[in-house]
Design a protein around this nucleic acid. Structure first.
Length: 352
DNA sequence: AAAACGTGGGC
DNA sequence: TGCCCAAGTTT
């Protein structure tokens, strides 16, 4: 597409967008805080998945002050099952910054908003354009797919430096009169028409598409680097006190499922030494009973093969740091990762 | 620059 | 089933 055709392109694109756009909850608000929440939830996450979380979240935390003042565990409970939990911790931290340092008004320049926790180049542009009408690029996976085809860009979109090419191109084409609709329209096009398997016959801007003209739309964008994920064996132990309480431990901060509570577990390849390893690592001496569950859980970069054992705690010595007993009621009240909820579901057949 | 970071849906 | 993908950010 030639830059000279920008006006015609935007007329067709925006007319299509206003005609065909999906009716989504965050398109009914102009509250920048709500736009921010929706953008964070939508990071690497499908629209259909996000909708119920979004509704519940803004209902429970209707203002930035509400979110800033909330207990982190309460906030996490609203994110339970959505994944990438650092997103919501960063969101709350960012909101606290805005409440404390900006008088509860989200800053309206790229350099300022980029300093907020959890706001990167994409979310900065999305909030600025959608909430404030600022003509800023918001380049996500959709935009790179759509633009790689429109302009026949064959750079590898897996490389970080490639994004600059797209950001620059967006700034050349963006509609200055309605940057919000422009950015959303490109993403909407990528989500519904210019999909990995494109439906070009439905595309409102097909006539501007260099890849369509060349017949190479199916092979764009170019994306390399797909790494095989590690598989690790996890042995998890369901340990119940005579009083009925369950022993859990808090996962280390910062890493996978950081700070989430889980049943005590070890990562090992060796079935025969798990008791010894538990003793070496935690000091807990266990008698193992039957295995009550087996499942595989696939994360983004690692796969857990989980075996759940019933176990008895032999030693009455003090619990290690980060370990404590939970009643069934307390168990339900804390945020649960997916692997945790799978284990609980299996235990439920015996106990709950 | 590359790896870590969750989960669910589609083919 | 297994791999790719989905409105990315942080380290």
């Amino acid at each position: 597409m030639q830059i000279i055709q920008k006006k015609e392109f935007n007329e067709l694109l925006l007319a299509w967008y206003h005609r065909e756009k999906r009716d989504l909850p965050w398109r009914h608000t102009s509250n920048p805080y709500y736009i921010w929440i929706s953008e964070v939830m939508l990071q690497q996450t499908r629209v259909d998945t996000v909708i119920p979380y979004y509704e519940r979240f803004i209902s429970s935390f209707p203002t930035m002050e509400c979110l800033a003042d909330a207990e982190e565990e309460h906030v996490l409970k609203h994110w339970e099952g959505l994944g990438y939990y650092s997103r919501v911790r960063n969101l709350q931290a960012g909101v606290k910054e805005v409440v404390e340092n900006y008088g509860s008004v989200i800053p309206q320049t790229r350099s300022e908003i980029l300093n907020l926790k959890g706001i990167g180049p994409y979310t900065a542009g999305a909030v600025l354009s959608i909430a404030y009408g600022v003509p800023e690029h918001a380049v996500d996976g959709n935009v790179m797919r759509v633009f790689s085809r429109l302009f026949l860009i064959e750079e590898d979109i897996a490389l970080p430096k490639t994004k600059k090419i797209f950001e620059q191109r967006v700034m050349e084409v963006i509609d200055e009169t309605d940057p919000s609709s422009f950015n959303q329209a490109i993403m909407e096009l990528g989500a519904t028409i210019c999909t990995p398997k494109p439906r070009c016959l439905l595309c409102p801007v097909r006539e501007f598409c260099d890849a369509f003209e060349e017949g190479v739309q199916e092979s764009l964008p170019i994306k390399t680097k797909k790494m095989k994920k590690k598989v690790v064996s996890i042995h998890s132990f369901a340990i119940q006190e005579p009083g009925g309480q369950w022993l859990l431990r808090k996962r280390p901060s910062g890493g996978l499922l950081g700070d989430f509570w889980e049943f005590p577990q070890i990562e090992t390849a060796n079935q025969d030494t798990i008791q010894q390893e538990m003793k070496d690592n935690t000091g807990l001496i266990l008698d193992l009973n039957e295995e009550y569950v087996h499942f595989k859980h696939v994360f983004s970069h690692v796969t857990w093969e989980v075996t759940g054992h019933f176990a008895i705690l032999q030693d009455a010595s003090p619990l290690p740091e980060g370990y404590r007993f939970f009643s069934e009621e307390e168990l339900r009240a804390i945020p649960q990762s997916k692997p945790m909820s799978k284990i609980l579901a299996a235990l439920g057949k015996y106990f709950f």
